[in-house]
């Protein structure tokens, strides 16, 4: 005879690849979501012991404390060069950089473009929150036209400061890029999409398909002067129109993958 009983099942728990420490990020900052997605993907792929992360300079400077695998810390903007050094001597390890927009798209633009052009087999997690968070919310290369920051108090004047950089679109033009997409972290649906992209970025590396980068639109409630919930809305209303969610470069081999 069959008995039907109710049994409790675990739906979600903190990923093992995240260290058991509280982060220094402000309440509601989506850096934490990005960290979590990366850790979940690394758990799912079972590559924690094969990982070497490269932390950057900015709010994510302490990323090495929040992941439970080997990490090195790069000078401002140089994470892709440092990751190149690691990957070239350890080609069978997984190498990731975790960089913000000031680090990657301003001071480190040379290093990221060169790494992408070489088809460097590394994965880049790129957080775009339209300002320099760590130093108190100054204008970044990603700051939107008209956006007020502590160094563009009347709003970014494109006559003076020029235009924001659409990093994913730009890097996707390079032949060395295997996977370049933009995702957002502002709601559950987009977070799920972002996680799938993080997985595909690491799969790109696993299969030797070249440079992979996931640009993640992220919030900075503190420096934007918004509540965490308002900040999520601002990503949707202000950032996505300028930085559309999209697949800018996807190596055809990735479409065949069964994950």
């Amino acid at each position: 005879m069959e008995n039907v009983t109710m049994e409790e099942q675990l739906v979600y728990d903190r990923p093992e690849s995240m260290a058991s420490v509280q982060t220094h990020y402000c309440p509601g900052c989506t850096h934490g979501v990005a960290h979590r997605l990366v850790a979940e993907v690394i758990d799912e792929m079972g590559i924690k012991d094969n990982m070497i992360g490269v932390a950057s300079v900015g709010c994510s400077v302490f990323a090495y404390n929040y992941f439970d695998f080997d990490f090195v810390q790069a000078p401002h903007g140089r994470a892709p060069a440092m990751a190149t050094g690691v990957k070239r001597v350890l080609p069978h390890r997984f190498v990731m950089t975790y960089q913000g927009d000031g680090d990657l798209a301003s001071i480190g633009m040379g290093e990221i473009v060169a790494a992408a052009a070489r088809g460097e087999n590394i994965t880049v997690i790129f957080l775009n929150n339209a300002n320099y968070g760590m130093t108190g919310g100054q204008m970044a290369p990603t700051t939107l036209p008209g956006q007020k920051t502590s160094s563009s108090p009347s709003g970014r004047d494109i006559e003076v400061a020029g235009f924001p950089i659409r990093t994913a679109e730009m890097l996707a033009t390079l032949d060395g890029a295997g996977y370049v997409v933009r995702r957002s972290l502002h709601d559950p649906k987009n977070i799920r999409m972002a996680k799938k992209s993080v997985r595909l970025a690491f799969e790109t590396q696993k299969h030797g398909l070249g440079f992979s980068l996931v640009e993640l639109l992220s919030t900075c409630p503190t420096n934007w002067g918004l509540t965490p919930i308002q900040a999520l809305k601002w990503v949707e209303d202000a950032m996505i129109p300028y930085y559309p969610i999209g697949d800018y470069k996807v190596n055809p081999a990735l479409k065949e993958l069964k994950i």
Partner: peptide, 21 residues
């Protein structure tokens, strides 16, 4: 809640039917 949580602070459980002979 766990999907949106920036701190990975939430553990989620759900009851499912379990059949046993």
């Amino acid at each position: 809640c766990a999907i949106v949580c920036p701190e990975a602070a939430i553990i989620v459980y759900r009851e499912v039917k379990s059949r046993s002979q």
